[in-house]
Structure formats: structure tokens, C-alpha cells
């Protein structure tokens, strides 16, 4: 395990250094990322100024959910984007090179690409989340403060799992399937807002199939001291983030099936 961590740092160092060779391009990408996501939240704030609230939710409350989603997604983008560029590796045959090494393929794919520019979204997400928690007038105990990183971790795992799944499809088809992207980006968009504003089938999709609600809306409701709005027992809300971890583990199992398929077809 310690060896894998060291090895991951080595891979990360290489990826970061090669990005730093193009400093200006990195700076622009990161700043651009920050500005674009910044405008995104500004637009949200403007709507709230105009309409006051979204059903029963205030701007601060929505901002907590928004912040958690974006921080989690930025982490997943930074650390699991390798799975997103992975279909190209299958197409040009360089995936074979990973199979020649005495390491798991998922590890090598994840470690092959660490996107520093995602620091833009990360900064913006943290700023929004920090602002909302500090000025929203929530009463936060120690447990609540621990729930924040837990929800973020669960979310990062879940989005990473989605990246793994979208990568895994390339073992079967070389056409890029937009289905997973729809869920991923649609999920980011949807979970910026409280899930209770959506129709039941949509809520169920994002609770039980792709459990985005479990890493965002449900712990968010507990965090802000309004479990009654979640429509689930309070203990569920506290444990919900682990669904993200389980989702990632399940995705990695699908990955293994994909690798086995690849090695038996060679295509």
C-alpha cells in the first residue's frame, strides 16, 4: 500500500511537471476554469436576488449543495480524468503497455493523468461552500463539520466511478457513448439544486441508481439542520455519503470485467 502511494506520487509528479512545462497555458486554463464556474454561481445568485427563494430553499442553502457538488466534481476531474481519455488508449493499442506492467490497470489509468487546472473549479467550489457555511446562520457542531469532508469524499468517489464507467464502455465499443456523460454533467447540474424540487422518478434515479443525492442533498439536509426536508430518517442522511464509495467500488468491479473482456477479445 505504501508502495502504491509512493508510486502514485511519482506518477503525479511527472504529470504535474509536464503540465508545468507549459506554465502560461496552465495558468490560463486554471483561471479560465475559475472564471467560468464563477459566472455560473453569479448567475444563480442573480436569480435568487430576483425571486428570493427556490421553493423553500434560500440562496445560502442552495450554495451549500452547490459547493459540495463542485468541490467533489473538481476532485474527481483532477484525479480520475485518466478514465475519460482512456478510450484513446484502447484505440491506439497503448493499453497493452499497461497490461505488461505488474500493476493494476485501474491504478495506472488513474495515475496517468492528474489535471491541475481543475484547481479553478475547486477554488470556486470551496469559496462558495465556505461563504455559505460561514454566513448562512446554520448551527454547526463538530459532527456537522466532519460531515462536510465526508460528503465531498463520497461525491468525489461517485463522480470518479462515473468516469470509470464511461471509460469501461470503450472496451466494448469504440464509439464514445454520450449516455454516461449525460449522467455525469447532468448530475453536476442537477445536484447544484435541492433534489426535492424535482419529480419523483428523477429523484429516485439520482438516489438509487446513480446515488448523487446520497453525497449531496441528503447529507446537505442533515448538515443544515433540516432533515425533515429530505424525506428520509436522519441516520440515513449521515450514512448516505458512503453510497458514493460503494458506487466507486462497484464501478471498479465493472472495470475488471471490461479488462477481462478486452484480454479475451483483443479488440
Amino acid at each position: 500500500m505504501a508502495r502504491l502511494v509512493r508510486l502514485y506520487m511519482h506518477y503525479a509528479g511527472i504529470s504535474i511537471r509536464s503540465q508545468m512545462q507549459y506554465r502560461a497555458s496552465f495558468a490560463m486554463a486554471a483561471t479560465g476554469h475559475l472564471v467560468v464556474t464563477g459566472f455560473d454561481f453569479a448567475a444563480l445568485a442573480v436569480l435568487f436576488r430576483r425571486f428570493g427563494s427556490l421553493v423553500e430553499w434560500s440562496l445560502h442553502e442552495v450554495a451549500v449543495l452547490y459547493g459540495i457538488t463542485h468541490v467533489a466534481f473538481a476532485l474527481a476531474e483532477a484525479f480520475a480524468r485518466g478514465f475519460d481519455v482512456f478510450p484513446a488508449m484502447v484505440r491506439d493499442g497503448s493499453f497493452d503497455r499497461l497490461l505488461l506492467r505488474p500493476l493494476s490497470t485501474a491504478f495506472q489509468v488513474a495515475a496517468s493523468e492528474i489535471q491541475l487546472m481543475r484547481i479553478g473549479r475547486l477554488t470556486q467550489g470551496l469559496a462558495v461552500l465556505g461563504w455559505a457555511l460561514a454566513t448562512g446562520g446554520f448551527s454547526l457542531g463538530l459532527a456537522h463539520w466532519l460531515l462536510v469532508p465526508l460528503a465531498i469524499l463520497g461525491g468525489a468517489c461517485l463522480f470518479s466511478g462515473l468516469f470509470v464507467l464511461s471509460g469501461v464502455l470503450s472496451f466494448w465499443t469504440i464509439e464514445t457513448l454520450e449516455v454516461v456523460n449525460t449522467v455525469t454533467y447532468g448530475g453536476v447540474e442537477a445536484t447544484q439544486y435541492p433534489l426535492s424540487i424535482y419529480r419523483p422518478w428523477f429523484r429516485h434515479l439520482f438516489t438509487f441508481v446513480v446515488p448523487l443525492a446520497c453525497v449531496n442533498f441528503l447529507p446537505g439536509a442533515a448538515l443544515m439542520g433540516m432533515p425533515e426536508r429530505a424525506g428520509a430518517p436522519e441516520w440515513c442522511l449521515w450514512l448516505a455519503p458512503f453510497a458514493g464509495v460503494l458506487f466507486l467500488l462497484a464501478s471498479l468491479q465493472v472495470w475488471r470485467v471490461g479488462v477481462r473482456h478486452y484480454t479475451s477479445t483483443g479488440s
Partner: peptide, 26 residues
């Protein structure tokens, strides 16, 4: 394993760094 048509090294890295990384991988 050496594939003549395809390198096992890291395209953007100096050779010595590929060697260092391989040391850790193996």
C-alpha cells in the same frame, strides 16, 4: 517485452526518468 513498433517508454520524459519510474513499478 519489446515491441519494435511501439515504445514502452514515456514519450515526454527524459530516458533516465522513465528508468526511475520503471524501478518503482517493478
Amino acid at each position: 517485452v519489446v515491441f519494435g513498433q511501439r515504445t514502452q517508454l514515456w514519450w515526454d520524459l527524459p530516458v533516465a526518468e522513465s528508468f526511475d519510474l520503471l524501478r518503482e513499478i517493478y
